[in-house]
């Protein structure tokens, strides 16, 4: 039984790391939701788009090569250079900021004062649009990202835990790196929003749109900044997920995984996004471990597998029934 417990703990720790990866996506949601009340379904596609753009720029792909080839009958695909990683990252961040500006200019500006649900559906449209544009620009084949992650952390953990328990835990290097990056991001975001002028303006907008407007904060530029930051977080999330499972269409589906994280943690809380991610990550791994194990089968007469597909949603659903605003969300007050 003790070794079962150890396997379970290993599953839980791996779940914790996956949960941090979910949180990376959820962070972008929370930022946009707090400052504009928009529930941005396109966050996952932004992650995909960011990662695609980074790989495309770095490997010197010609944007829209397929489309150009189809229209003009040419056969171009690469410029024939590879850019250094730093330059590619800077250029990609530039693209994401441009994207934020375009979204504000052509979509959000026209949808001010609409119901939240209309805005939500608009971002679903945006997600489809971006997905198509991303595929058109860079092609839909699976791309690889190699991250310069220091190897050997997991080896150390493996041998340490082997000494302690007589069983070595396996934890992916990439997951450890993602966890560290997530912590750094949260600290950086907190410092930014607490101690800089822009951060203060951002919090003011989150608090009350009209009051912020009346003291001279430009709502529109704040929105561009927020979408830019969310784009940057999406880029980080996209690169981490891309390094894990390849940059491909399924990356955009992590939005769907981030949604229950948000519901659990509350839409308006940055710590909530992190803790919600961890709960979901650990919960789904441990649940899968329990219901697929042989002793569960002996006790209940059946086993289940691939429960990760729905566990997060059902957990969030049950949780919301008892606490509709999530763990850390602001209390929902309704008036007629």
């Amino acid at each position: 039984m003790f070794d079962q417990f150890l396997y379970g703990t290993e599953a839980a720790i791996n779940g914790l790391m996956t949960g941090v990866m979910y949180s990376l996506v959820a962070l972008g949601f929370v930022l946009i939701f707090k400052s504009s009340g928009i529930f941005n379904y396109a966050q996952g596609v932004m992650a995909l788009f960011g990662a695609l753009t980074l790989v495309g720029i770095q490997s010197g792909q010609v944007p829209f090569a397929h489309l150009i080839n189809a229209i003009f009958g040419t056969k171009i695909h690469h410029f024939g250079w590879t850019l250094p990683a730093i330059l590619a990252i800077v250029l990609t961040i530039g693209v994401m900021i441009l994207f934020a500006w375009l979204v504000e200019r052509y979509l959000l500006k026209h949808l001010v004062n609409q119901e939240p649900i209309i805005l939500f559906m608009a971002t679903i449209g945006l997600a489809y649009f971006m997905e198509g544009v991303g595929d058109l620009m860079w092609g839909s084949d699976i791309k690889k990202i190699d991250l310069p992650i220091p190897q050997g952390i997991n080896g150390t953990i493996d041998s340490l835990t082997y000494d302690w328990f007589g069983y070595g835990f396996y934890i992916d290097n990439l997951d450890i790196a993602a966890a560290i990056i997530a912590v750094v991001l949260v600290v950086a975001l907190t410092i930014f929003s607490q101690y800089s002028t822009t951060g203060r303006a951002l919090r003011a907008v989150a608090d009350d749109h009209q009051a912020a407007l009346s003291v001279g904060i430009s709502l529109r530029s704040i929105w561009v900044i927020v979408w830019g930051i969310a784009g940057f977080i999406a880029l980080v999330a996209g690169v981490m997920w891309g390094a894990k499972s390849g940059v491909q269409f399924s990356l955009s589906l992590i939005t769907l995984k981030a949604l229950p994280v948000l519901m659990l943690g509350g839409f308006t809380s940055i710590p909530g996004a992190i803790i919600g991610g961890m709960i979901i990550g650990v919960g789904e791994k441990v649940f899968e471990f329990i219901v697929s194990s042989s002793w569960f089968g002996d006790a209940m007469g059946f086993t289940m597998n691939a429960t990760e597909n729905w566990f997060a949603y059902v957990l969030a659903l049950l949780f919301l029934v008892f606490r509709p605003q999530g763990l850390f969300g602001d209390k929902i007050i309704e008036r007629v």
Binding site: H66, L67, I118, A122, G125, Y128, F129, E131, G132, D135
Partner: peptide, 26 residues
């Protein structure tokens, strides 16, 4: 044109129409 290219353009067009509908005539 190749089929996958048409598929991507279709996504762009559907997404664009959704946004346009919501902006112009909700």
């Amino acid at each position: 044109w190749p089929g996958d290219l048409a598929g991507h353009l279709e996504l762009v067009i559907i997404g664009g129409i959704i946004m346009l509908t919501l902006v112009l005539e909700p």
